[in-house]
Structure formats: structure tokens, C-alpha cells
């Protein structure tokens, strides 16, 4: 039995909703770099675009660990996070990063120098890399969705949104890099443009589904969604996640095609939107009131 009319109570000794404050901006930034990197690597690999693959590996192999370490209470013992892959998504994710980065480097070297000669070993390395990248893209969503305490996160749509944002931001960065550095043909750019538009629509649908599911799930989920769309976080959520991250890129790509200006605006908008989503979804996470006895005691 939870209290349906409970307020947000902060650290007070009142019964009510409390914000989770254990995972904050550094953790959100680590999630952002991990998903961005794996997505960029996969999309770039599909188009044989080595610059994007390298940037993806740097994002996941350097950016993500850096921000994870800034978040950790005891960074020197962070290696211990690999010890429980049997039950913890954090362990599984860390192991997949440790596989993804070195195997991804081998794939880059294969594409650059052809060390495998197109043989079985090269294909095996690529298969392992893709599998690891898929885990890196989604494990953070799984880690959040397994947290039954925060209703906003406790949904199967959380890993789906991780996947969608990873691919969307990966497409954005790949298209941006290709526009700036060259290296992809016109047909590839047009294909990337179409994928970009498609992923924007898919991501929008997933976001709306996630909010809908949370709002109609539990009172805690309703509280979080209200914070995101009506109260404390509504301005950044509407402005950055939806406005800059979805609507602006859609308009830019729809009317600007693959022109450099349109691509730059769309890519930067997506990155801003994705990062804001990561931060705000943490900020809006609330614990539900532990218990309420008012009704049982005849007080309401």
C-alpha cells in the first residue's frame, strides 16, 4: 500500500516521494559516452568508415571509463565490478566493454590493413565485436530497468531506449564526421540521412511509450513523469530532449537534406537531446513512499 497523495519530501522525516541522488551527472555522462561510442562504432562499421569507428572506440574506451571513475566511491577498487556477471548488469556491461574495445581495435586494423585477408578469424573478431557493442549499447538500460525501486526506470522500454539513442547518436556522429572529413560517397550519405530520419521517429515513439508506460504504471512513475513534463524538469525536458533532440533535427534534415549546415544542426541537436535525456531520467527518478497507514487506521 503506497500513499497516493504523498508529497516530495527531500531528506525530511516525512512520508513521501524521495529523489534518488546516487546516480547523477557523472553516471549519466558515462552512460552517454558508452552508448554514443558503441552506436557510432556500429553505424560507422556498417559503412566502412574508419574515422567513425575510431571515435566510437575512444568514446566508449576513454570517455565512459573516465566518467565512471569520477562517479565511483572507491575508484581504486573498480575492477571488482567484473566479479558478478551471473547477476549484475553492471558486471556484464563492464566485461562487454573490456571485450568491445580491444576487439573493436582489431576490426579497425583489419579494415585499414586487411590483416585477416577476409578469412574466418576476421569474421569471428567482427562477430564478437558486434555482440559486445550490442551489450554495451543496452546494458545500462537493463541495469536501470532491473531497479524495481524507481518506477520510471523499471520498464522493458529502458534498454530499448538505450539502443535507440545509441543508434541515433551514432548515426548523427557518423554523418557529421563524414560531412566534415569526407570519406563516404553520396549514396552512403543519402542512406545515412534516411536512417537518421527513421531513427528520430523511432526514438520519439519509444520516448512517448516510455513516458506513457511510467505514467500509467505506478504512483512513483506518475510522479516522475509529472516532474518531467509538467513540473521541475519540464523546461529542459521539452526544450532539450524533445525540442533540440528530436524536433530540430527532424526539421533540419527534412528541409536541409545532407547539406553541411543541416547535418551539423541535426547532429548537435541529437547529442544535446540525448545527453539531456540521460541526465533528466536520473534526476526525475523517485522512490515511492515506503508504506502508508492512514487508510488502514481510518485516518483518510
Amino acid at each position: 500500500m503506497s500513499n497516493t497523495d504523498a508529497p516530495l519530501v527531500g531528506d525530511s522525516f516525512k512520508l513521501g516521494y524521495r529523489f534518488q541522488n546516487f546516480w547523477d551527472v557523472p553516471m549519466a555522462t558515462a552512460f552517454f559516452f558508452g552508448e554514443l561510442g558503441a552506436g557510432t562504432f556500429l553505424i560507422s562499421m556498417y559503412f566502412d568508415f574508419i574515422a567513425g569507428m575510431i571515435l566510437g572506440l575512444i568514446s566508449t574506451g576513454v570517455g565512459k571509463p573516465f566518467f565512471h571513475l569520477t562517479h565511483m566511491g572507491v575508484p581504486a577498487k573498480s575492477w571488482r565490478a567484473v566479479l558478478r556477471p551471473d547477476r549484475s548488469w553492471i558486471s556484464r556491461g563492464l566485461i562487454s566493454i573490456m571485450v568491445f574495445v580491444p576487439f573493436g581495435m582489431l576490426v579497425v586494423l583489419d579494415q585499414a590493413f586487411g590483416w585477416s585477408g577476409g578469412g574466418f578469424l576476421g569474421k569471428l573478431v567482427m562477430f564478437v565485436t558486434v555482440a559486445a557493442a550490442l551489450v554495451v549499447m543496452t546494458y545500462q538500460g537493463f541495469a536501470m530497468s532491473h531497479s524495481s525501486s524507481i518506477s520510471l526506470w523499471n520498464t522493458g522500454l529502458m534498454p530499448v531506449s538505450s539502443m535507440a539513442y545509441a543508434l541515433l547518436s551514432g548515426t548523427a556522429v557518423t554523418l557529421l564526421l563524414a560531412s566534415v572529413l569526407g570519406g563516404l560517397g553520396d549514396a552512403d550519405l543519402v542512406m545515412l540521412h534516411k536512417i537518421f530520419l527513421g531513427l528520430l521517429v523511432v526514438t520519439l515513439a519509444i520516448l512517448l511509450s516510455l513516458l506513457h508506460a511510467a505514467y500509467h504504471g505506478t504512483r512513483g512513475g506518475q510522479q516522475s513523469v509529472t516532474l518531467l513534463i509538467k513540473e521541475s524538469f519540464s523546461l529542459p525536458f521539452h526544450g532539450l530532449v524533445f525540442g533540440a533532440g528530436i524536433v530540430l533535427p527532424l526539421i533540419a534534415l527534412w528541409f536541409g537534406g545532407t547539406t553541411p549546415v543541416a547535418v551539423v544542426v541535426a547532429a548537435i541537436g541529437v547529442l544535446i537531446g540525448f545527453f539531456s535525456y540521460r541526465v533528466l531520467i536520473f534526476k526525475a527518478g523517485v522512490y515511492e513512499p515506503q508504506i502508508s497507514f492512514a487508510a488502514r487506521l481510518g485516518l483518510r
Binding site: 546516480w23 566511491g73 571488482r80 565490478a81 549484475s88 532491473h146 524495481s148 525501486s149 527518478g285 522512490y287
Partner: peptide, 22 residues
């Protein structure tokens, strides 16, 4: 001695009964 301070237990506890000591 084994805790790394990742906070995953704290966000998993529905009862908000964990604290991080800095």
C-alpha cells in the same frame, strides 16, 4: 572492503535505505 561505491544497490533498494559515506 569489497564495496566500490557504484551506488547500484542504493538505486535498487525500493526503501531508500542506503547511504554513501564520503
Amino acid at each position: 572492503e569489497k564495496c566500490i561505491g557504484c551506488g547500484s544497490c542504493a538505486v535498487a533498494c525500493p526503501y531508500d535505505q542506503r547511504s554513501q559515506v564520503s
